[in-house]
């Protein structure tokens, strides 16, 4: 059986990026920032490619973003997706993004919609839940293991202090995290073929925006680290008790 998988990816600053803002702290400063596929989305994509290699699947990657995200989308094609869709809009909030993804999903009739457990820019952890609700599908997150057996999906999901093992029937939505698959690096052949794979651009549907960004802020700078003599670690305990007051 060949199934249809939709993988939703974000285009986010590399994890080592320095974060800063412009326009009186109302816009993210993209200057000099290296962009990557969201690390969790990368796990989702890698798992989809594994499924494609083992049992056959067609993979569509989807990003809601402006034209600047296309190099990131091409990278996903190079890793193994067959085609891509970009919904041409600034991803202003989770509900907006989820609505766009749900629209695409309704047209595509996917068996499985894979996402990351969360984006590393907005860290909301909600888009998969919203999309599932909009489509009337069950959503699972964070999923650490996902196996297909015909129509049945076996998953291992992280819960606090452990994990649970569950079964559900396709179609589903899942937010992925490690160790669901090994990250893939595009190879030369992948990069070459990605250039000619279809990347379709869709215009967004309009959505009433409930949550609006007003301003960004950086945390206050850290003070100096106070060093304690390694011969007298008990001094540290005293400082934690009397100065930091955390013991």
């Amino acid at each position: 059986m060949s199934i249809k998988i939709l993988v939703c990816i974000t285009h986010v600053p590399d994890t080592t990026s320095k974060i800063s803002f412009t326009d009186s702290d109302t816009k993210f400063d993209k200057n000099g920032v290296q962009y990557i596929i969201g690390p969790y989305d990368d796990y989702a994509l890698a798992r989809a490619v594994e499924i494609k290699e083992s049992g056959g699947a067609s993979i569509t990657v989807l990003n809601v973003g402006l034209a600047e995200t296309e190099p990131t989308i091409r990278k996903a094609l190079a890793i193994g997706a067959d085609e891509a869709i970009r919904v041409n809009a600034e991803p202003v909030d989770s509900f907006f993004v989820a609505t766009q993804i749900a629209e695409v999903a309704k047209e595509g009739n996917y068996d499985m919609i894979l996402m990351g457990r969360e984006s590393i820019d907005f860290n909301s952890g909600v888009v998969h839940g919203m999309v599932g609700e909009m489509l009337g599908l069950p959503s699972f997150s964070p999923v650490m293991k996902l196996e297909l057996n015909g129509e049945e999906v076996s998953m291992t999901r992280e819960i606090e202090g452990g994990k649970d093992h569950l079964k559900a029937k396709l179609p589903i939505v899942a937010g992925c995290q490690e160790p669901i698959a090994e990250w893939r690096i595009p190879n030369m052949r992948g990069i070459m073929t990605a250039r000619t794979k279809p990347l379709n651009v869709k215009e967004p549907v309009s959505v009433e925006q409930h949550v609006k960004t007003e301003k960004f802020e950086l945390p206050p700078p850290k003070g100096q680290c106070k060093l304690v003599d390694p011969e007298h670690p008990e001094e540290l305990i005293k400082l934690l008790q009397n100065e930091a007051k955390v013991l």
Binding site: P13, T15, I19, I120, D121, F122, V211, T213, F216, E217
Partner: peptide
């Protein structure tokens, strides 16, 4: 946001 590297002030309408 940004995995603890920044904050976002939002208004909920």
């Amino acid at each position: 946001i940004y995995t603890g590297k920044a904050f976002e002030n939002v208004s909920v309408k």
